[in-house]
Amino acid sequence: MKNWLICIDDTDDIGTKGTGEIAEEIAHLLQQEHLKMTEHSGGCLVTRHQLFVHPDIPYTSHNSAMCFQLESHLDFADIKQICVTHLLQESAAASDPGLAILDMSSSYDISALIAFGQSAKETVKTKAQAYQLATEQGIDLTEHGGTGQGVIGALAGLGLRLSGQDGRVKGQFCLGNYNKGADIEFTVADILANTPLQVVLSDSGKILADDERILLTGKVKAVYRQHMFALLVSRHGSAWVNASKQTLKTY
């Protein structure tokens, strides 16, 4: 089996299906195809990577790229066909979709990709720069409508995901009866056993032990840190509490 990193950007418009939802759908379609060949399929969580917001960048409302990792027997041609077919079907008419696919077993300069991603959070990048880096690193980078400007974010998203230190995880997580409304305490072990999350991290980056207790309040959302899907928590008095949307906005 091979590992692939897939990222899309600039597929939506105000009032249309979001890029994150389209990424999740593509991940699901790829997993379904993969399951035709084998019984096992791991989940692929989508991460959202915030890019630069600047008047010179034609984003819709927030300029974020969506990325996921796929472990599969599928070959490149099948993966790309599924991605492109769904992008063409679901992207907004006024959007400028870009798609980046990285074979993680190939030889590529991870530092160069991370640097591009980090730079795209602070400066305006061009399509020419994105295509040049993709060519140098053997990454399949393609545009699928409009100006194709989304190739910049798609490549940047790959780099940011590879950094292991960027992004929020799309969606929210359910634990037992928690989503009935009232705040409930769980141990770290319970949280890790009942979600796809890999770690509970304090806001200073410390990994919490399995027996630590966490008070869950509001929506349970996660971030991508230390190359793991992490529940972020902070101290409120004597209790650890999951991070609010206000806290997560900088991730």
Binding site: G18, V53, S64
Partner: peptide
């Protein structure tokens, strides 16, 4: 309300969470 993953305020009815806001510098 915008897509839940694009919201930055725990209070739902907030311009920060609105479909029609466009973030700037």
């Amino acid at each position: 309300e915008d897509d839940e993953d694009e919201q930055t305020d725990d209070h739902s009815q907030s311009c920060f969470n609105c479909l029609y806001r466009r973030w700037g510098l």
